[in-house]
Computed example of a mutant assay.
Amino acid sequence: MMVSATQPADDGASSASTGIGNSAGGTADADLASDASTDEATQQAARIKEARLNARTKTFHWLVFSVVFALLPTLGNATVAALQGESQTLAQLALKGDLYIVCMGLTATSIGQALIRKGEHRKGFIATVSTFNIVLLASVVILSGAQDDPKIDQEMMGRISLSFFVTTVITTAIVTYFCELELPE
Rank of each mutant, 00 (worst) to 15 (best):
A138N: 04
T167F: 12
G21P: 01
A127H: 07
R159V: 14
A5T: 11
G97Y: 01
S87H: 06
T59H: 02
A51H: 04
V129T: 08
L181C: 05
L99P: 00
V166N: 07
L93P: 01
L93I: 08
A13G: 08
V129N: 00
I152R: 02
I116G: 06
G76A: 12
K118D: 10
F178W: 00
L93A: 02
Y177A: 01
F60R: 09
E50A: 15
T167W: 10
C103H: 00
P184Q: 05
M156G: 03
A24R: 08
F60L: 15
A91V: 02
L143M: 11
E185I: 07
K151N: 12
N54T: 14
D11Y: 11
F60H: 10
A78F: 08
T172S: 09
K123E: 12
A81S: 11
I20F: 09
G12P: 03
Q7L: 14
W62F: 15
E155V: 11
D10V: 15
A78V: 07
A36H: 10
D98E: 12
T57N: 11
L136E: 02
R47I: 01
K96L: 13
D39R: 13
A51N: 02
T18H: 12
I48P: 00
Q84V: 03
T79S: 09
I101H: 07
A24K: 05
H61I: 12
T74E: 01
C179G: 01
Q44S: 05
K123M: 11
S110T: 02
L183E: 07
E155C: 04
G105V: 13
V166G: 09
D11K: 14
K123G: 03
A13W: 12
A108P: 00
G112A: 07
F125M: 07
T18I: 10
S66D: 06
T176C: 08
D148H: 13
G97Q: 01
A81G: 03
G97W: 01
F132C: 02
T18A: 14
L53R: 13
N133I: 00
Q92R: 06
G145F: 15
N77T: 06
E180C: 05
T171I: 07
A81N: 02
